[in-house]
Amino acid sequence: MDVPSHLQSEVKQLVSVHGRDRTALLPVLRGLNKSHSYLSEAAMLCVSKELGVPRAEVYGVATFYSFFSVEPRGKYVIRLCRTISCAMNGTYHPVVAALIEELGVAFGETTADGVFTLEQTACIGLCDQAPAMLVNDDVHVKLTKESVRAILGEYRRKAAAGEKVKSA
């Protein structure tokens, strides 16, 4: 399979920062996962070649960690904590309902516009401020159904603004 040249240069750039040995595999995958929201077949092949790590092992690592995905995902990945302190909080179920209703997708799915992927995650260390979620790397705590709607609105605006910048 042919690897697009822009992807090649992106991988080369990451390798120049993180090194060309096996220990660089996670940081390089992380960089790609961040910029594309997921790890494509072409991206993994390119990493395999650059780092000299067998392709099957790149895939094995990519599928082990929950922050990596080998399936396309939205621009913003929402990870709602579902571990006990969050899950038993009184506003947890309303928050779940608001997310599903607002996005129109179930957990594990991506919105049709490609803006959001909704996921559940294990404890994110914000139990004292439950319920909590991450949107990409951002933290959102003490969620309510109202706050969730507002938060999603923010990201939608950001996504739309990003689109405008791109097309301008």
Binding site: R22, L25, L26, P27, Y65, S66, F67, C123
Partner: peptide, 25 residues
């Protein structure tokens, strides 16, 4: 500073080391 990628088991020290070495944790 080296980042994990989402795996509770990497809190286990030998799994953490595997992860740092670029492997499955």
């Amino acid at each position: 500073i080296r980042m994990g990628a989402g795996a509770y088991v990497c809190g286990e020290e030998s799994a953490l080391i595997e992860s740092l070495e670029g492997k499955r944790g």
